[in-house]
Amino acid sequence: DTLAYFNAALSAENAGNLPKAIEYYTKVKDLNYPQPLLYNSLSSLYLQTGDTTAALNVILEGKSKYPDDFNILIAETNIYLASGQNEKAMANLQEAIEKDPTNPTIYYAIGVNYAQIDDIENAEKSYKKAVELRPDYFEANYNLGALYVNQAAMLLEEANALPFSQQAEYEALKKQANDKLSLSLPYLEKAIELDPSDRNTLLSLKEIYTRLEMYDKMKEVNELLNE
């Protein structure tokens, strides 16, 4: 009985018995239970056991039966992202945007994908779109701020590698780095507003305030870090 297997799968999953849950969900799937989310659940269980190949195979089977299901598309994309298959992930994300063009989570995922392949310009655009669509999106605010911080770090590294005789070039690069840090501030400050206890954001802000000589702000962050 399909429903009995489905209930048994749910019970096993809730009890943390992943092998049994996988066994019962597979039986339900093989009985052609007409529910797309079944494939997401089974794929997620395989991921929890570390079997990425089985997780992807289940999702692809679900996609062949439900080609227009948005949740299956996103689950497939997440597997590609987790396994570094950036081109396949990007193709799926572009398809997802066409289906749901105002979904900030998709733009965030696109930004992550671009950042992983060092396409900084498109990563920046995608994170900005995610923040525009959902201003209280912590991860998008943090990642956009971190993107600028990383650019600043690269500029400072380049500046510090210059010989002493190239002082003008050093100052120019240092100014560019500080400009990038200034760009990061609104997003990291928004991130800490959304999650005041996030230590990574606080440490980034401390470094930025120090470099930009914003000592009152630095003192506030130090107090939060020492709480």
Score class of each variant (00 low, 15 high):
64 S>I: 06
71 N>H: 05
38 L>E: 01
77 T>K: 08
77 T>V: 12
54 A>D: 11
39 Y>P: 07
77 T>N: 10
36 P>K: 05
62 G>I: 03
41 S>P: 00
32 N>C: 00
42 L>H: 08
57 N>W: 00
74 I>S: 11
47 L>P: 03
35 Q>R: 04
78 N>W: 06
49 T>C: 11
32 N>V: 02
37 L>P: 01
41 S>W: 04
79 I>C: 09
40 N>L: 05
76 E>P: 00
58 V>S: 08
49 T>E: 14
69 D>Y: 05
63 K>D: 13
37 L>C: 00
64 S>A: 15
57 N>C: 03
35 Q>S: 02
71 N>F: 08
39 Y>E: 06
44 S>V: 01
50 G>Q: 15
57 N>H: 07
78 N>V: 08
61 E>G: 07
36 P>A: 04
79 I>Q: 10
73 L>I: 06
65 K>R: 15
60 L>R: 14
38 L>H: 02
60 L>H: 10
68 D>I: 01
44 S>E: 13
78 N>T: 09
33 Y>E: 03
59 I>V: 14
38 L>Y: 02
77 T>H: 08
78 N>H: 12
32 N>R: 10
37 L>K: 08
79 I>D: 10
53 T>A: 11
40 N>C: 08
61 E>D: 14
47 L>F: 09
69 D>A: 01
59 I>S: 13
34 P>F: 01
36 P>R: 02
39 Y>Q: 06
50 G>R: 15
37 L>D: 09
70 F>A: 09
55 A>G: 11
58 V>P: 11
68 D>F: 01
42 L>Q: 05
31 L>M: 07
62 G>L: 06
37 L>N: 07
75 A>V: 03
36 P>W: 03
57 N>D: 12
69 D>S: 03
34 P>D: 02
56 L>G: 02
38 L>V: 04
46 Y>N: 13
78 N>L: 12
58 V>R: 07
54 A>K: 15
60 L>C: 01
36 P>Y: 07
64 S>D: 14
35 Q>V: 01
44 S>T: 11
59 I>T: 15
50 G>T: 12
45 L>A: 15
75 A>N: 12
43 S>M: 12
73 L>Y: 01
46 Y>F: 15
50 G>P: 13
52 T>Y: 14
52 T>V: 14
53 T>Q: 13
44 S>R: 06
64 S>W: 04
35 Q>W: 06
60 L>N: 15
60 L>V: 00
35 Q>K: 08
60 L>I: 00
40 N>Q: 07
32 N>T: 04
49 T>I: 13
71 N>D: 12
68 D>W: 00
66 Y>A: 04
66 Y>I: 06
46 Y>R: 08
33 Y>C: 00
48 Q>C: 10
55 A>D: 14
49 T>M: 13
31 L>R: 02
44 S>K: 09
40 N>Y: 06
32 N>W: 00
61 E>A: 11
66 Y>Q: 08
64 S>K: 15
34 P>Y: 01
55 A>C: 11
43 S>Q: 12
62 G>P: 07
38 L>M: 02
47 L>T: 13
55 A>K: 08
73 L>S: 09
50 G>L: 15
74 I>N: 11
66 Y>T: 06
79 I>L: 12
79 I>K: 10
37 L>M: 03
